[in-house]
Simulated scan of single mutants.
Amino acid sequence: MTPYANRRSRKYLHQLEVIRLFEAARTTGRHGLRDSTLVWLMYRHGLRASEARALTWGQVDFEHMRLHVQRKKKGSPSTHLLGAFEVGALMRLRPEGATPSTPVFINDRGTPLCHSTIYKLIDRAGQAAGLDVRVNTHMLRHSCGFHLTNVLDRQYRKIQKFLGHRDLKHTARYTELDDSKFNDIWDGEIDDPTVKP
């Protein structure tokens, strides 16, 4: 049970809410570039907090614009395309003298961000963004799955590989998150009981 389990009305954010979260992370706190890049990569690549904190510069291929994702929880690794914006942000974030084993997201002491720090900075950004749900780290992964499934209508198998799911049932659950899936179920029927068909 997460601390905010009883306060969340849904488990995902819409993309415009993620953008608001990104903007808030960029302007809240002392590490705007790091924090906003973290938020965007966790969303775009469906990263768990543990996967984001373990990310190293050796997993970032700037020449071919690729991110080599190592999944936790026995998930399948995969290689993702990086967008031009992501590459630019990562290039600005990379410290001079970084080696392939250097973590991408570090604190002031040069060590990987701990899970609680990632959780707090995302929660803080969510509050600063004025979102109507309390945001936690795993919501960004759910938001990625939700958007790929219900907005972009990508194939389940492709999403499964992208998110590193070993079992397709974990991917299929993103259809259950869609609060608009029944919007058209009564299309063409009366919605006023005082009107006779």
Rank of each mutant, 00 (worst) to 15 (best):
Q127D: 14
S78G: 14
A128Q: 13
A129G: 01
R92C: 05
A125P: 12
L82I: 06
V133K: 04
G126R: 02
T117E: 05
G145K: 04
L93S: 09
I122C: 03
L93P: 08
T79I: 15
F85Q: 01
T117S: 14
P95L: 04
L67S: 02
M91Y: 12
V87T: 15
G88F: 10
F146A: 03
T117I: 08
C114T: 10
G130E: 07
P100F: 15
S76E: 15
S101M: 05
G83M: 03
R71Q: 03
P112C: 06
W57P: 07
G110N: 01
G88K: 06
I122T: 03
H147I: 06
A129I: 07
G88D: 12
S143L: 08
T102W: 11
L113V: 10
L131M: 08
G75S: 00
A84T: 12
S76M: 08
M139P: 13
R94H: 01
P112W: 09
Q127E: 13
I122L: 12
L121D: 00
T137R: 02
R109W: 13
R92H: 13
T79N: 04
A128T: 09
K73Y: 10
Q70I: 09
S116M: 08
L113T: 08
Y119Q: 08
L81S: 13
N107V: 10
G110F: 07
S76W: 12
T111W: 09
D61W: 15
R134M: 11
I122M: 06
I106Q: 14
R94G: 00
E96D: 10
V69G: 04
V60A: 04
H80C: 04
G75A: 02
G145P: 14
L93F: 09
H64T: 06
G97S: 13
A84D: 13
L90C: 02
D61H: 15
A125T: 11
D132W: 08
D123G: 06
K73W: 12
P95S: 01
E86S: 09
D108K: 12
